[in-house]
């Protein structure tokens, strides 16, 4: 923390200062309430019985805590005709996210290493083309991708979704590593080459040991993106291979039977838990990923 106060000391009396300070904290607390309220409502609703939901109100604490809704959401809520809860879809999301995160991060690291350190004619054009690819609305690739996945025979499968996430994740992972490696002096690479080290040797022995922070940024970014993805998940999956976001949406919008709001909320929290956990554990890196593409380094 820096030690500086923007408040000029001479123009304000101690009382005004105290009042301003008080107002400031009140404002901060009100905003904190605004951001926390939906999470609070989700948690309390998920712990109430349906009767209590119908008679009580949104912000009251549960009179009687019950975990029935959680059990239903996890293993027996209906996502359409199937009633297996979110568990199989949670697993699907893991099976999609883990390989896709690893593959796109490895390729991104190599790409970034080339673009930043082995400049050749065209490398910058490649980077510009790739960067622009980060910004396209994915709707524009949805139809041809559906056809290509069909031709490759992986339409509606988990490998198909992994493939899609790797392809469209490359732009960001390359960007992360390129911006990180560009600050490493190229003399290092040149000196290693004179000593007889090759392309991969330099990457492995010099760049990899320095890369831990940016690997964490890339892994967290990709994991959050892929876990939270809905568009690709809903477009390229079929019954049985859907990710958890699609299953959650199906549970909430399934029209059969009584509307179980407590189950909806429990399912929503379950779907949110992995990325929330990542955020709480590694928030610093999460923010670095968010700002990496948008603030000039």
């Amino acid at each position: 923390m820096t030690d500086m106060s923007y408040a000029p000391t001479r123009t304000q009396s101690p009382t005004t200062k105290l009042v301003l300070r008080f107002v400031l904290y009140i404002l901060l607390a009100l905003f904190a309430l605004f951001y926390l309220m939906p999470l609070f409502v989700m948690i309390t609703t998920s712990l109430k019985s349906l009767d209590e939901i119908r008679t009580g109100d949104l912000v009251s604490l549960p009179r009687e805590v019950t975990f029935d809704a959680w059990r239903t959401a996890w293993s027996s809520a209906c996502t359409g005709i199937q009633c297996e809860g979110v568990r199989p879809y949670f697993l699907n999301s893991l099976l999609i996210a883990i390989p896709a995160v690893l593959i796109s991060t490895i390729i991104g690291a190599l790409n970034g290493y080339v673009v930043a350190q082995w400049k050749f004619k065209g490398a910058n054009i490649f980077f510009a083309l790739l960067l622009f690819g980060c910004f396209i609305p994915f709707q524009v690739v949805l139809l041809p991708m559906a056809i290509v996945l069909g031709k490759l025979g992986i339409s509606g499968t988990i490998p198909g979704l992994i493939f899609v996430h790797v392809i469209y994740g490359l732009g960001f992972t390359t960007l992360f590593f390129r911006n990180y490696y560009v600050s490493i002096p190229s003399e290092l690479t040149k000196a290693a080459m004179i000593d007889g080290a090759g392309f991969f040797r330099i990457f492995w022995s010099i760049f990899m040991p320095l890369s831990l922070p940016i690997i964490v940024v890339s892994v967290i970014w990709q994991f959050t993106q892929i876990w939270n993805d809905f568009l690709f998940g809903v477009s390229f999956s079929q019954a049985g291979t859907q990710p958890v976001t699609v299953a959650l949406n199906n549970i909430v919008n399934s029209t059969t039977g009584v509307k179980e709001y407590n189950v909806d909320m429990a399912a929503a929290i379950i779907a949110a838990l992995p990325t929330l956990l990542v955020y709480v554990v590694a928030g610093k890196y999460f923010i670095r990923g968010l700002t990496a593409g948008s603030v000039k380094g």
Binding site: Y35, M37, P38, L39, V41, M42, T45, L58, T224, W227, N228, D229, F230, T245, L248, N249, V252, Y261, D264, M265, A268, I269, A271, A272, T275, L276, V278, Y279, V280, F286, L290
Partner: peptide
């Protein structure tokens, strides 16, 4: 923290609220 959530989760929560 809301930035870490899926839009589907955000939508579900606000739909209920």
């Amino acid at each position: 923290y809301p930035m870490a959530l899926s839009m589907i989760v955000t939508g579900t929560a606000w739909k209920w609220i």
